[in-house]
Computed example of a mutant assay.
Amino acid sequence: MLEVGMETSPRIEGGSRTTAQHWPTPDASAPPGESPDGVVEPCDLVTVPARQGLEAVDILRRGGAPAVGPVLHDGTCDTLGFLVPPGTAEAWDVPGSACTQTAGGGLRIPGVHTEPPVSGTGWLLPPDATGPVTDPVVLREALGEAARMIEAADNCR
C-alpha cells in the first residue's frame, strides 16, 4: 500500500465538500499545481486498489481531455495513488479509497522525469506537460464508474 505517513481524511457525513471545493474546470483539467512564479505546490494522494485504479485510469484517458495527472503504483502493484490538489483530503469520502493529506509532509508535485516522491513506488503515469494533478471531481466520477464496472463483471461469473 502507498504510505506517506500522513493523516487521512475522515468521511464527512451528509455530503462531500470535495465537489464544492473542486468544481471541474471547463477543460476538465485540474487546477494548476505550479504557481505563476514556478513554485511547486504540495499535493494530496488518493489511493485505491490497483484493479479499480487501472479501470479509472482507462476511463479518464478515454475522456479525451487531460483529466488524469501523475499516478503512482506501490512496489507490489496492489494500490495506485492519484496526485490531486492540496485540500482534497479534507472532504474525500469515496468508499474503498483513502485520501492522504500531505501538505507540510513533503509530498510535492514533481517535475517531469523525476523520481516518484514516495519511496518504494514507481510511476504508472509520470508527470508530464498535460497537467500536474487529477481533478478530484473527475476522479470521483471515474472511480464510481470503475467500481460499478468491476461489480458488474464480478457478478457475471
Rank of each mutant, 00 (worst) to 15 (best):
L2A: 04
E3P: 03
E3H: 15
V4L: 14
G5I: 07
E7K: 15
T8N: 13
T8G: 10
P10F: 08
P10I: 03
P10H: 08
P10K: 13
R11Q: 10
I12W: 11
S16H: 12
S16N: 12
S16D: 14
T18A: 14
T19D: 13
A20W: 10
A20R: 14
A20M: 12
W23K: 10
P24T: 09
P24G: 05
P26R: 11
P26A: 12
A30D: 12
P31A: 11
P31E: 11
P32A: 13
P32C: 08
G33M: 13
G33S: 14
G33Y: 11
E34Q: 14
S35E: 14
S35A: 14
D37W: 12
D37Q: 13
G38E: 10
E41D: 13
D44C: 02
L45G: 06
V46T: 05
V48C: 10
P49F: 06
P49D: 12
R51E: 12
Q52I: 09
V57N: 03
G63Q: 01
P66S: 12
P66E: 07
P66H: 04
A67K: 00
A67F: 02
V68T: 04
G69H: 02
P70T: 05
V71G: 01
L72P: 03
D74P: 06
D74Q: 04
G75L: 06
C77E: 14
T79C: 08
T79M: 04
F82E: 05
F82C: 01
F82M: 01
V84Y: 04
P85Y: 02
P85T: 02
G87F: 00
G87Y: 03
T88H: 09
E90N: 11
W92E: 03
W92F: 07
W92T: 05
D93I: 06
V94E: 04
V94F: 05
S97Y: 00
S97W: 02
Q101W: 13
Q101N: 11
Q101T: 09
T102M: 07
A103R: 09
A103F: 01
G104A: 02
G105D: 07
L107K: 07
R108M: 07
I109G: 09
P110W: 00
P110D: 00
H113R: 15
H113V: 03
H113Y: 08
H113L: 11
E115T: 12
S119Q: 13
G120Q: 07
T121F: 03
T121Q: 07
G122M: 08
L124K: 04
P126K: 06
D128S: 15
T130F: 11
T130W: 13
G131Y: 07
P132Q: 14
T134N: 07
T134S: 10
P136M: 11
E141G: 11
E141C: 10
A142C: 05
A142T: 02
L143R: 07
G144R: 13
G144C: 12
E145Q: 15
E145M: 14
E145S: 13
A146L: 00
R148V: 01
M149D: 15
A153W: 01
A153K: 03
A153L: 05
D154P: 02
N155M: 07
C156P: 01
C156E: 10
R157L: 08
R157D: 08
